[in-house]
Design a protein around this nucleic acid. Sequence first.
RNA 1: GCGGAAGUAGCUCAAUUGGUAGAGCGAUAGCCUUCCAAGCUAUAGGUUGCGAGUUCGAGACUCGUCUUCCGCUCCA
Length: 483
Amino acid sequence: MANDSNKFQAIISHCKEYGFIFPSSEIYDGLSAVYDYGQYGSELKKNIRDYWWKWMTQLHENIVGIDAAIFMHPTTWKASGHVDNFSDPMIDNKDSKKRYRVDHLIEAHAETLPKEEGEALLAKMDQFLAKEDFGGLKSFIEENKIKCSVSGTCNWTDVRQFNLMFSTEFGAVSGEGDDNMVYLRPETAQGIFVNFLNVQKTGRMKIPFGIAQVGKAFRNEIVARQFIFRMREFEQMEMQFFIRPGTQKQWYEYWKEERMKWHLSLGIPASRYRFHDHVKLAHYADAACDIEYDFPIGFKEVEGIHSRTDFDLRNHQEYSKKKMQYFDNETDEAGKPYGNYIPYVIETSIGLDRTVMMVLSEAYEEQDLSSPEKQDSRVVLKFPPKLSPVKLAILPLMKKDGLPEIARQLMDECKASFRCFYEEKDTIGKRYRRQDAIGTPFCVTIDHQSKEDGTVTIRHRDSMLQERISIRDVKELVEKSIQ
RNA sequence: GCGGAAGUAGCUCAAUUGGUAGAGCGAUAGCCUUCCAAGCUAUAGGUUGCGAGUUCGAGACUCGUCUUCCGCUCCA
């Protein structure tokens, strides 16, 4: 049995070996922190995405979905704070090899000085930062003899920019300067905010209501490792819930609970989850927490729930000069309508790729099936049936005597309703184990008795138990289990 | 980015002190089989990560380079 540190590696290998996840551009040695989903991985991912989408939009009557473009007007990212807050200059100490954010380094130094001197230092720093004068910043650090806390030296590299956002050029002709630069979105949320009015008006949405979206987002990471856990290109499943100002506390609590219900509905025990409250809040939030799952590499964030106040809509109103207001006809305790306001927002944001990783981690199991007579083992992915890439494997016991024909008939009957897999090669046990490895919940075997009385053996993945049922009941049994 | 380790078939690994690259599993095709992997036969698959160098001769030795893993660093 793999221990936890090996389990992560084992899952990665398994994913590659059975067509779930491959390193991107592998024939060219791969591309760091980018991965491709293979034939089963893409099914699994799609099933998770669909389940989330249905749960959020179909089961919550006041939530609708959109699909905004990845390209957005560059001003979007000024309004959201991404341009200013996430392009931090960095500097490395050549002796200790330690890397610092320049502002953190100078701030730490300022704290050691008398108050007035420290403030003067920070004011000067802000001037350099505002001008993006990196050369000046370096000299400034050297003049003030700011040292590395590890090496104690002043031996610094040049100041370099860390860019969170990927940028590209808009327009067919390159080299026309910064005017043509657009970013690949670093989060999907802004696509919802810029469409707030469109959706609210055309959908006649009344507060409280939500807008959901699933889509790709792109971020440069300083250290990009840990498989699909931290990727440069990743997929988010987000919902922004618009509410009346002052009610954010109660809705924040509501969505914490509601989202946890979703997680538990995957059949994952509550003990594998925990909430982690943010102490240091991001620039847009007045409350925030993560839902963390106990991965083989420890508890890690899968989903974030943030109370974003009216930060985003207010900023978009300021930058776009368009009113981001909602007129609330409902009356308060005094009998007066609430009137015009910029809604507050509760955000739920879950990483789809991380959820795939979570579902894989939970499902992956190496089992020792040895008996006194014989050594035996299997690897099984115990997915919830509704998430399994393949729902049913149809296996004629032998490829003769008319058994394949019966199997093909069943295949034709079922394949329009859910994904089936047909196989007549190899011994039956081998075929069962191959299906275990990709997490297929059911296998049916057609034998000679099937010809006589129309029954088949259905074999259950987790228990490995077999039962005899009518071939006519197979489809319904599978359908019930994947609802 | 730094330090350490490792790159040989799809996977796991061999290959005497430098002398023509092999095996098991897997895959494919067939045979045999009445229900839980490792029965039989055949076949395919490798410029030993890449590039130089030393040598009569390099998978092995030297240098460079790329990638991966582990640790450090960084991270809303």
